[in-house]
């Protein structure tokens, strides 16, 4: 075997990131299909589930940069396989960077609320940045953006609720003996 390399994320941690990225993609797709894409409740639920999984993942892999890596991997696969627009990638990455910076400034992921803070900042920052990208697309007629704002707000409400359900999910996983303190 060639020389051993010490890596920041172990293979196991990278696998956790990949599995949760797959689960997040499938869950949101499922909710959108089952509930109808334009259904406000399914829009809420979609974002709630995504955020919940993100919180649980960050409690499993409590390292700086994990959220950024998750976002990058998720967008890459979405763009290649699921037809997501690559234009959102800068917005998502910027949001993730801001989230990582926030957590770093507040003591890191080792804090009990570190993962929740990271996801909370990510949710809002990425949405604001995505609205910025959308503005660039619609700059000739910014009023078109107004049509997207309620959808974004509704999605954010779902994501905000996901912070609580994510934290509760971690508590439930502790009850099930799957995640330890």
């Amino acid at each position: 075997m060639s020389e051993l390399v010490r890596r920041y994320w172990s293979a196991h941690e990278l696998v956790v990131i990949g599995v949760f990225a797959a689960a997040a993609k499938v869950s949101t797709l499922l909710v959108a299909l089952a509930g109808g894409g334009m259904n406000p409740v399914s829009l809420l639920l979609k974002n709630l589930i995504y955020t919940t999984l993100l919180v649980v993942m960050l409690y499993r892999v409590r390292k700086a940069g994990t959220l950024l890596l998750f976002s990058l991997v998720s967008m890459l696969v979405s763009a290649l396989l699921l037809g997501a627009s690559i234009t959102l990638l800068p917005a998502i990455l910027l949001g993730a960077l801001m989230a990582e910076a926030s957590v770093a400034l507040c003591g890191g992921y080792s804090r009990a609320w570190g993962p929740v803070l990271a996801v909370g900042v990510f949710d809002i920052a990425s949405r604001v940045c995505s609205l910025g990208i959308s503005w660039l697309f619609m700059r000739e007629n910014p009023s078109l953006l107004m049509a997207a704002v309620p959808v974004v707000i509704l999605g954010y409400l779902g994501a905000a609720a996901g912070l609580f359900t994510g934290y509760n999910a971690v508590k439930e996983l502790r009850h099930a003996g799957i995640v330890r303190q």
Partner: peptide, 29 residues
Amino acid sequence: LFTPLLFRSLRTSEDLGIAAELKGLGYGK
């Protein structure tokens, strides 16, 4: 809908993580 998928994700990541360790993924440069 979500609870079984969450637990499935956790078990899968555990099993696959172990397999990744045993296969030596990432140990090479």
